[in-house]
Amino acid sequence: MKMKKFIAVLSIASMMAVAAVGCGSKDGEDAGTDKGSEGSWDAASAISVVSREEGSGTRGAFTELFGVVDEDDNDMTTLDAQTTNNTSVMMTTVSENEYAIGYISLGSLDESLVKAVKIDGAEATAENIENGSYKVSRPFNVAMKPDLDNPVATDFMAFIMSTEGQEVVSGEGYIPVAEVEAYAGTAPEGSCVVGGSSSVSPLMEKLIEAYKEVNPNASIELQTTDSTTGMTSAIEGSYDIGMASRELKDEEAAELEGTVIATDGIAVIVNKDNPTDDLSVDQVKSIYVGDVTTWDAV
């Protein structure tokens, strides 16, 4: 009896030892391959498809625009796709794995880590989204109750939808809303709570800082959660203004008044060692549906 236990422990420990040694030696290999990794590109390798979580604004826009849906608009992303709810995990995964493909908000794209591919020949830039040649984009929404009685919230909304506010939007790499007028607010005193989508949050942070310069009397609290919490909390009243990186659902739109404050592009990203520069909408679709599983078959 004791012997059996002992052997079990021993075998596990020796497995660990082998694993540890294996890891050590692979460390060395890695260092070697990193330098000459262009030569190691093997187009026959399986594609690692990385996707966002079901229900995310980014994923919703992506599947809709690339047609990764069936006749009834059901999401058909392959079940073999990795899922993450985090932009930086998406970028890190793609930058670490030569054969990965993913998609992220254009505002978060870091070109030193990953490469954004052209879609149907159009580069993922703010200009191309504005002139319509790059079609993969989604709205940033904010919503508040129509009968909300908070002068700071109303004034802050007016600021976002002014020339000054939209300058901040374009300065951060997002696409501003057309036709706005200069800010002519009253700079009221008081406080308000803004909260919701983590995708909108970085932009909102900049907007709040810019607003504080024109109205130092106001204090604005920013809660970074997610689109749904943003909308439900705005309905319940714990947020004055809710943020969502997707369209408002019907039941939310019944209680809230939504405003598009900016448009954000979605970039399709691959590893920097991937020779692919240009993909068509159909190619992206077939990768994400799971029809194509290796890079040489694209």
Binding site: E53, S56, T83, N85, S198
Partner: peptide, 27 residues
């Protein structure tokens, strides 16, 4: 990945992961 696999080299989704990943946008 929300699917059953027999290989330990394949990905998997856990119960906790399911909650955190999708809670944000679910209605």
């Amino acid at each position: 990945q929300p699917r059953i696999t027999g290989s330990i080299l394949q990905g998997i989704r856990t119960l906790t992961g399911n909650i955190v990943i999708e809670m944000g946008y679910a209605t």
